[in-house]
Amino acid sequence: MKNILISGALGYLGCHLSVFLANNFPMYNILAVDNESDKKYISNKKVLENYSNINYLKKDITDIHFLESILNEKKGFFSTYLSGKIDIIYAFAFDSNLDLFSNKSHNLTDNLKTCISIATQAIKSWNNLKDKKIIYISSADVYGNKDKNFSEQDCLNPENLKGSLHASNEMILKTMSLNYGLPVTVFRASSYFGPGCKHNNIPTHILSKLAINEPINLPISIKSQINIIYYDDLIYGLETGIKTEKTFDIYNLGGFNISVGDFIDISKQILQKRFGLNYNQKIDYPIDKILYSTISLDKVYNDLGWKNYTELEDSIEKTIAYYISNDS
């Protein structure tokens, strides 16, 4: 029996992973934690509370006393929720709504504080690091922009705040692993989409606007090459992190390498053929920036036997259907 702590559990991926593990792996007990600061996913609280093997707590994962209480194997706090010890920590608690000049700019440092708090407290509290692991969900944004398929061996060159913060957290965790033996697996996820996703990334923005026939405003050129993945495939990939054996390792998790223009064209065809709707709004990208951020998936397939399985057309159709049915 493994006990799994999921931080940022109300977020899109955190919630879906919690439910996936609860439904498919009865040998896992889940402690789902979230500070409920991101109100757009607050309804996921009711979803998690419906599962007997998911224990939900409204807590701040940066609260050192809370972390010490649930990770320290000599104390009985955790037995209030589940028997046994925390074996796996999924670190999802990352604020993607980053604005350097807003009044909430402290969120930038909070992203670093979360990672440092989890790692340092795990080292202090876990008596035996065998069969323990931190699984950190990073982003393919750490690579930056280059005309090639990025592999895990490529140098990091982030060009946005999100990528820079994830790269910093990766380096912190790698240092903790090298110096203290902390077992860490990092997954660099590409842009994900699916029913219910409310992120303002490229595929989600495109599909949500197509479904309700509203203008599409992009921060990059439609000539850009990106990698996109359906959320189901990403969740299955994240579960494989429990099985990794190295003290420290990094894996890309992505789906299809595709141009933004081709993704729009395929989506418009599906909108017309499957739903009988036509898109006739403007597609605008005022900054003609061409981004090259495709990634290689060879390592995760060779090491973990994982690959994305959902056909692109199917994933687009399911997502568009959600946005059409939920258009208010």
Rank of each mutant, 00 (worst) to 15 (best):
N145D: 04
N145M: 10
D147F: 13
D147E: 12
K148P: 00
N149P: 02
N149Y: 15
F150D: 05
S151C: 15
Q153G: 04
Q153A: 13
D154A: 10
L156E: 11
L156D: 09
L156M: 13
P158C: 10
P158S: 06
P158K: 00
E159H: 00
E159D: 12
N160Q: 09
N160C: 07
N160V: 01
N160E: 01
K162D: 11
G163D: 02
S164Y: 11
L165Y: 03
L165H: 06
H166D: 06
A167I: 06
A167Q: 01
A167E: 06
A167P: 03
S168M: 06
N169D: 09
N169P: 02
I172C: 12
I172G: 02
I172A: 12
I172K: 10
K174E: 14
K174Y: 14
T175K: 14
T175N: 14
T175R: 13
T175F: 14
S177H: 09
S177W: 10
N179F: 13
Y180W: 12
G181W: 08
G181K: 04
L182C: 00
L182S: 03
L182Y: 03
P183Y: 09
V184R: 08
T185M: 01
T185R: 05
T185P: 00
T185N: 07
V186E: 11
F187V: 07
F187A: 06
R188Y: 08
A189Y: 06
A189T: 11
S191K: 01
P195F: 15
P195N: 11
G196P: 05
G196V: 05
C197A: 13
K198H: 11
H199G: 03
H199S: 15
N200L: 12
N200H: 15
N201Y: 08
P203Y: 07
T204G: 04
T204L: 07
T204K: 04
T204I: 10
I206Y: 07
L207C: 06
L207D: 01
S208Y: 05
S208C: 10
K209V: 09
L210V: 05
L210D: 02
L210T: 03
L210K: 06
I212N: 01
I212W: 02
N213W: 03
N213G: 03
N213S: 02
E214R: 15
P215N: 01
I216N: 03
I216H: 08
I216V: 11
N217D: 12
L218N: 07
P219I: 13
P219M: 00
S221G: 03
I222A: 05
K223L: 14
K223P: 00
